[in-house]
Amino acid sequence: PPQTPIRAAMTSIQQLRSDLLSTGDQPSTNLYSYFENCTVDPTQDVLKRLETFDQEFSQSFGQAVGPRCIVLGKQRFTLGVRLYYIVMEAMLKSEEKRLSVQNFSKLLNDSTFHTSLLACALEVVMAAYGESCFKAGGYNHGGGDSAATDVCFPWILDVFNLAAFDFYKVIESFIKAYPTLSKDIVKHLETCENLIMERIAWRTGSPLFELLKQEHDSGAAEQVETPAS
């Protein structure tokens, strides 16, 4: 049958739901093993962070969509956490294979990494439900419905007080780690990526400016690259 925006949205939801309904709300045994292999076990921090973000996300979702939607926000958050755990485990498996190490203590105790990964998982869930779109984008399922546009990207960055530049870092690894994402969701993430690269990362206060300054101060800018590289 021909692909329509409604059919595409339904496919995205069904696919994601079937993946996430078969998994639990807690880290899998394998993911726990990665936590236990760390020099500093991140388990308690991971769980505490999720508890805090659960409150913040549900409240902000309710404010944006409507007070009666706090429950809906909680449901989205639950699905987002499941996806966060699945993708984190897949990323760690891939890193273990690539680096031949099992101790990811530094990464797994990095709050920005967890926040970015969780934000990306929630962005995927909201995009699957047609809640996150782009006001000037080509696939705004909400049409004139203000509720559907209030949680549009980069709304999630404000909720978690996350720098766009840090969110950008997880997108490609997320898509690699979860290869069954529907093409509409991949397209959505790519649009987020483009928005960050073209606009959001250059806003006042972005950590990108400090990084560029550090690069310049370290003399990296003076090094001339060969045409091949």
């Binding site: 680096l99 990811f104 990464l107 990494f113 870092k169 997880v170 490609e172 690894s173 093409k183 991949v186």
Partner: peptide, 21 residues
Amino acid sequence: SHDYHFGLEDHEGISELFDCD
């Protein structure tokens, strides 16, 4: 199908992106 452009090299994993390598 939608073809995402993967730009990272093989030596650039999530650990490097968060300076945790």
